[in-house]
């Protein structure tokens, strides 16, 4: 089953989802397609016109181009998602290359999709980590196998 992870580049979530037999949907796969395809638009951190047009499927035209460009990449991933695991206190999802509004929109779109969603928090102690991992494992085991 295809499981969307948020933050979409999370090492811990991507690893856990894969470890327990599902396919994580991560942003790196999409970026890889861009950076390994020899095109004029292949330079790394640029979005092309195509992404901006694709982004219009998810946001209005007056939305800042940053959100539209990000949604051009993240939107199709959300469309593929059959389940999602979200980390609530992921401050690092809003960093130099992150976008708080995109994060809100991604969570909103996932909620609209009516798919099974698990919300957890980054652990600070061993006990918290056990609870988090146990929740994720139970959630993934209860999803039907791909």
């Amino acid at each position: 089953m295809k499981v969307f992870v948020f933050p979409p580049n999370s090492l811990i979530l991507a690893d856990l989802v894969e470890r327990f037999g599902h396919e994580p949907i991560v942003i790196m796969e999409e970026i890889r397609k861009k950076v390994t395809t020899p095109e004029i638009d292949s330079p790394p951190l640029n979005v092309s016109e195509e992404e901006l047009i694709r982004g219009l499927r998810y946001v209005a035209v007056e939305t800042p181009s940053g959100i539209r460009g990000r949604m051009g990449i993240l939107g199709p991933l959300i469309d593929q998602a059959e389940a999602a695991v979200i980390i609530e206190n992921a401050d690092f999802a809003f960093g130099c290359s992150g976008c708080a509004r995109t994060n809100i929109l991604v969570k909103y779109l996932l909620g609209q999709k009516e798919i099974p969603i698990l919300k957890v928090e980054y652990p600070s102690t061993v006990e918290n980590a056990e609870v988090m991992v146990r929740k994720i494992v139970d959630f993934l085991k209860n999803l039907s196998k791909p």
């Binding site: 999370s10 090492l11 690092f92 130099c96 980054y122 652990p123 918290n128 980590a129």
Partner: peptide, 17 residues
């Protein structure tokens, strides 16, 4: 920076697993 942040949490996740 994100990998560095998650790298610090890996001992907790490993112990939980």
């Amino acid at each position: 920076h994100f990998i560095e942040f998650e790298h610090q949490l890996l001992p907790l996740i490993g112990a939980a697993l």
